[in-house]
Simulated assay, not measured.
Amino acid sequence: MHHLTVKDVMTHKVISVGENTGFKDIAQTLLTHTVSALPVVDDDGHVVGIVSEADLLRGKEPQDTLSGEPTPPKRQTCANRTGGEVARELMRVPAITISKDAPVADAGRLMRENDVKRLPVIDGQGRLAGIVSRCDLLRAFIRSDHDIEREVRLDVLTRSLWMDTSLVQVTVKDGVVTLSGRMTLRGDTRIALDMTRQIDGVIDVIDELAWDRDNTRTGERL
């Protein structure tokens, strides 16, 4: 059974900046390509950080010269910065990255845990290979019901279980799979259900399977 990996859904052409790229050039690149953040790479193409619009606008709060207390925050713009900073000084480290061979589910988990919308994708040597966004991950779940049904029948029921599954019916509606009919062993119904849940694009699995013989241990959690 094939599971989509990050390299299957990522954008291969990715815009990045070097460690010594200046403030104004970073800002121009963000505006030109309509992105909110850029990977920062070293001379060998390794991802060393991330620089975003927020990083460019972030600065020290000005201090009240008499009390030493922060003055009310002011909206900072590119125009009131000196432009002397480079990506190395502005970027956030370490960069949160994902391997190109990682399952798409791992990329989604990293995005949720770190509250980010995209991740730089790296190869086995840590070099920038692409970028994956939330939209890219969603494409993994946009599969036709026909494709899902075919994968359940071929990869789960025929190739993996190695048994006569002619009495099992598979129906798919909007990504929800219903398995019905009859199987010989109760344990095999569990395997079929678990494997179906792991198929890319499956939203939920409804169990309507019956079985002839219970080959599970008494009290075993199913």
Score class of each variant (00 low, 15 high):
residue 1 M to Y: 13
residue 2 H to D: 09
residue 2 H to P: 13
residue 3 H to L: 13
residue 9 V to H: 02
residue 9 V to N: 01
residue 9 V to C: 02
residue 15 I to C: 01
residue 16 S to D: 13
residue 21 T to R: 10
residue 26 I to T: 03
residue 28 Q to F: 14
residue 29 T to R: 14
residue 30 L to G: 03
residue 31 L to I: 05
residue 31 L to A: 09
residue 32 T to H: 14
residue 40 V to A: 07
residue 41 V to T: 15
residue 41 V to F: 08
residue 41 V to Q: 06
residue 41 V to G: 01
residue 42 D to N: 15
residue 43 D to Q: 15
residue 45 G to A: 04
residue 49 G to K: 11
residue 51 V to F: 07
residue 54 A to G: 12
residue 58 R to I: 01
residue 58 R to K: 13
residue 61 E to I: 07
residue 63 Q to G: 00
residue 71 T to E: 09
residue 71 T to L: 12
residue 71 T to Y: 01
residue 72 P to Q: 08
residue 73 P to T: 04
residue 75 R to C: 00
residue 76 Q to Y: 11
residue 76 Q to S: 06
residue 78 C to E: 09
residue 79 A to I: 05
residue 79 A to W: 08
residue 83 G to S: 04
residue 83 G to I: 02
residue 86 V to A: 06
residue 86 V to G: 06
residue 88 R to H: 10
residue 89 E to Y: 02
residue 91 M to V: 05
residue 97 T to G: 03
residue 99 S to Q: 07
residue 104 V to P: 03
residue 104 V to K: 01
residue 105 A to W: 09
residue 105 A to D: 12
residue 108 G to Y: 09
residue 109 R to Y: 00
residue 110 L to S: 01
residue 110 L to W: 01
residue 110 L to C: 00
residue 115 D to P: 04
residue 115 D to N: 11
residue 117 K to M: 04
residue 117 K to S: 13
residue 119 L to M: 06
residue 121 V to E: 11
residue 121 V to A: 10
residue 123 D to A: 09
residue 126 G to C: 03
residue 130 G to M: 03
residue 132 V to A: 04
residue 133 S to Q: 14
residue 138 L to K: 09
residue 138 L to R: 10
residue 138 L to Q: 11
residue 139 R to E: 12
residue 143 R to E: 08
residue 150 R to W: 14
residue 152 V to I: 13
residue 152 V to H: 11
residue 159 R to Y: 08
residue 159 R to N: 06
residue 160 S to W: 03
residue 161 L to K: 08
residue 164 D to F: 07
residue 168 V to P: 05
residue 171 T to K: 08
residue 177 V to K: 05
residue 177 V to I: 05
residue 177 V to C: 02
residue 183 M to Y: 06
residue 184 T to V: 13
residue 186 R to V: 02
residue 187 G to A: 11
residue 188 D to Y: 10
residue 190 R to I: 11
residue 190 R to C: 13
residue 190 R to V: 12
residue 191 I to E: 08
residue 191 I to A: 05
residue 191 I to K: 14
residue 192 A to Y: 11
residue 193 L to C: 07
residue 193 L to A: 04
residue 193 L to P: 15
residue 195 M to F: 05
residue 202 V to G: 00
residue 210 A to G: 14
residue 213 R to I: 13
residue 213 R to N: 12
residue 214 D to Q: 01
residue 214 D to K: 00
residue 218 T to I: 12
residue 220 E to I: 02
